[in-house]
């Protein structure tokens, strides 16, 4: 088991290497660089100044040299300074992680709390009004673009009703009440969409499982219908649901760039997004590393959970 986990984490090395090479190349291919950002903002457009700045930032060297230098420092744990804020990249990114994790975990939990009971009931009461309502709602959830739903929520709950702040963030440990108010809309936007997928998945895998013979066996020994469905059948039906939700969580932890931008949520997605806009190479590179780690580790966690849920699976 431990050997398996270590091997899976070792996969990170090639994954991250390829990832950083690709990202480094892509950012290089984008028109403009950090000098444009700086020069443009400071109103200076002197070729001489530009030359000096480029030398100072090391941009006069070819891309592979810069990548090699970056890599050499990165493996020693030095990710450099943000070109824009001049603060260490690690600090910049780490400050975004809690907010992202907070939103992702609350969003996924919300979606599971809605989707699993709803999908189960839809399956049990298939082809009834409840089922159709659940199905149509989840179809809407899948079809509506996330950002549009978010903006509608802001319009309705913030501008029209004035119940909730339209954007912003408060530390839940400092001011839980304010934090909750900031959290509701983004979490609902995340949760609604994820719940839409999860409901459909839970429904269809419940329908599959309910046709299996072990369900009749459980009934044939006199267990109550509630136990048959919610214990014996749901546990089997949850195997695909948990897998997909874990992958969804991995995605969300990578930062919901669009939602974080709409709600001015100070997460890692927004940090990387802005870094790309400003051609802040060190921040982009380190951000991608963090995302790569998150995805690989989340996949590992999903596999481990899968093993817990499904005893037939052997890891190796």
């Amino acid at each position: 088991m431990l050997a398996y986990i270590i091997r899976r984490i070792a996969y990170l090395v090639p994954v991250l290497f390829v990832l950083t090479v690709v990202v480094f190349t892509f950012v290089e291919m984008l028109p403009g660089n950090i000098i444009d950002t700086l020069v443009g903002s400071e109103g200076v457009n002197d070729p001489e100044v530009r030359k000096i700045l480029e030398k100072e930032y090391g941009l006069d060297q070819p891309v592979y040299v810069r990548y090699a230098k970056w890599l050499l420092r990165a493996v020693q744990g030095d990710f450099g300074m943000s070109l824009v804020t001049r603060r260490p990249v690690a600090v910049e990114l780490m400050s975004g992680i809690p907010a992202t994790v907070y939103l992702a975990v609350v969003g996924i939990s919300l979606s599971m709390l809605i989707a699993v009971p709803l999908g189960t009931i839809a399956a049990v009461k298939r082809n009834t009004a409840i089922d159709y309502t659940a199905q149509v709602t989840s179809l809407i959830g899948i079809s509506i673009p996330e950002f549009w739903f978010a903006i509608l929520c802001v319009l309705f709950f913030s501008l029209y009703l004035g119940w909730l702040p339209s954007s912003g963030f408060a530390n839940p440990f400092v001011d839980p009440w304010a934090s909750l108010k900031f959290l509701i809309l983004p979490a609902a936007a995340v949760g609604f969409r994820q719940a839409a997928y999860t409901t459909r998945l839970t429904r269809s895998s419940m329908l599959d499982e309910m046709n299996k013979e072990y369900v009749d066996t459980a009934r044939s020994v006199g267990l109550s219908e509630g136990k048959v469905i919610f214990k014996y059948t749901l546990r089997n039906a949850m195997i695909p649901t948990i897998t997909i939700s874990g992958l969804q969580l991995a995605n969300l932890l990578g930062g919901t760039v669009v939602l974080e931008s709409i709600f001015a949520w100070p997460g890692i997605g927004r940090a990387i997004f802005e870094a790309i806009l400003q051609r802040d190479y060190p921040l982009v590179q380190a951000g991608v590393l963090v995302l790569g780690c998150i995805v690989v580790i989340m996949n590992l966690l999903v596999d481990l959970t899968y093993r817990l849920l499904n005893p037939r699976v052997k890891l190796g």
């Binding site: 299996k212 013979e213 072990y214 066996t217 044939s220 020994v221 014996y232 546990r235 089997n236 499904n310």
Partner: peptide, 16 residues
């Protein structure tokens, strides 16, 4: 009344 099914692999719950 109780019942024994044909295919025990599918008649018993795989995850319990």
């Amino acid at each position: 009344i109780a019942m024994v099914f044909q295919e025990p692999m599918s008649a018993l719950n795989p995850v319990f």
